[in-house]
C-alpha cells in the first residue's frame, strides 16, 4: 500500500514543471506570472499546513474535531462561491446554506449506507470533495443567473406585467442556472473512465489498491457528486432568484 513515496528531492525537481509554465507565460506575454506565483506558493503552504492538520486530526480521532474541520471546509467553500455571485445580495448566507445542506445530506446518506465510516480519514477528504464540487456548481449557477437576468430582463418584466409571481417570472432562469451548475458534474460522469481517470481513483491505484476496488470507490464518488451538486444548485438558485427583485415585485 505504501509503495508511493514522493521525496522532498523529487518534489523540488517537480518545480521544473512550474518553471515550464512560467516560461511559456512570460514568452507569450500572457500576464499571469503574479497569479501563477501566488497560486504555487498558496498551494504549497495550504497543502503543507492541511497535511499536518489532517495527520493530527486522524491521530486524535475526535468527533468534534472532525466536525470542526468539515465546518471550516464548508465555510471556505461558501466564501469562494460568494465571489462568483457578482453582487447578488446575501450570497454568502445562500452559499453556506446550499453547500452545508449538500455536504451533510450526502455524507449522512453515505454513512447510513455504510459506504464510509465516520472517521476523520474518510469524512474529511470526502467532505472536501463534495464541498468543492458544490462550490463550483453554486458559482456557475450564480454566474448563469446574473447573465440571464441581465439578458432576459425584458422577458422577465413582461411576465411580471402579465401578473406572474416572482417564481413564475423567474422559473425558466432558475432551471437554466441549475442546469449550468450541474453541467460539469454530469459531463464528467458521462466521460469518467474514457476521458478522465479521476483524482480519487487514480490516487488509490497509485497507492497500490486493486483497480477494481478503486473503481467501486469512484462509482460511489460519482453518485455522491451528482447528488451534492444537484442539492447545492437547487438550494442556491431557489434562494438567489428572489434577490433580483425588490419588495414591490419589480426587477432591481
Amino acid at each position: 500500500m505504501n509503495n508511493l513515496v514522493v521525496s522532498p528531492t523529487a518534489l523540488a525537481f517537480a518545480i521544473v514543471l512550474v518553471l515550464i509554465a512560467f516560461g511559456i507565460n512570460l514568452h507569450e506575454k500572457i500576464g499571469l506570472e503574479k497569479d501563477m506565483l501566488i497560486g504555487v506558493l498558496r498551494a504549497v503552504i495550504q497543502l503543507t499546513v492541511v497535511g499536518y492538520v489532517l495527520t493530527y486530526i486522524i491521530r486524535v480521532d475526535r468527533v468534534w474535531l472532525t466536525g470542526l474541520m468539515v465546518a471550516i471546509i464548508i465555510f471556505n467553500a461558501a466564501m469562494n462561491a460568494r465571489k462568483r455571485a457578482n453582487g447578488i445580495p446575501h450570497a454568502f448566507r445562500i452559499s453556506l446554506l446550499a453547500i452545508t445542506a449538500a455536504t451533510l445530506t450526502t455524507i449522512a446518506l453515505l454513512v447510513v449506507a455504510g459506504a464510509v465510516r465516520f472517521t476523520p480519514s474518510q469524512i474529511v477528504p470526502i467532505s472536501g470533495m463534495i464541498a468543492s464540487n458544490a462550490m463550483v456548481a453554486v458559482g456557475l449557477a450564480y454566474r448563469s443567473m446574473n447573465t440571464s437576468f441581465h439578458d432576459q430582463r425584458q422577458g422577465v418584466l413582461e411576465r411580471l406585467a402579465l401578473g406572474a409571481s416572482l417564481k413564475q417570472a423567474s422559473v425558466h432562469i432558475v432551471r437554466e442556472s441549475i442546469r449550468t451548475g450541474m453541467a460539469p458534474t454530469i459531463d464528467s460522469a458521462k466521460t469518467v473512465g474514457i476521458v478522465s481517470l479521476p483524482g480519487m481513483m487514480s490516487g488509490l491505484i497509485f497507492a497500490g489498491v486493486d483497480p477494481t476496488k478503486a473503481i467501486m470507490y469512484q462509482i460511489m464518488v460519482t453518485f455522491m457528486l451528482l447528488a451534492a451538486t444537484s442539492i447545492a444548485s437547487v438550494i442556491a438558485c431557489y434562494q438567489a432568484y428572489p434577490q433580483f427583485y425588490n419588495e414591490d415585485m419589480q426587477l432591481n
Binding site: 425584458q154 422577458g155 418584466l157 413582461e158 411576465r159 411580471l160 406585467a161 402579465l162 401578473g163 406572474a164 409571481s165 425558466h172 414591490d248 415585485m249
Partner: peptide, 19 residues
C-alpha cells in the same frame, strides 16, 4: 397583491419579447 393587480391592469410593451 401585485400579481392580482397586474392581471387586472395589463401593461403592453412597446417592443414586446415573446417567450
Amino acid at each position: 397583491s401585485k400579481p392580482a393587480y397586474r392581471r387586472e391592469v395589463s401593461y403592453c410593451f412597446q417592443q414586446p419579447s415573446l417567450f
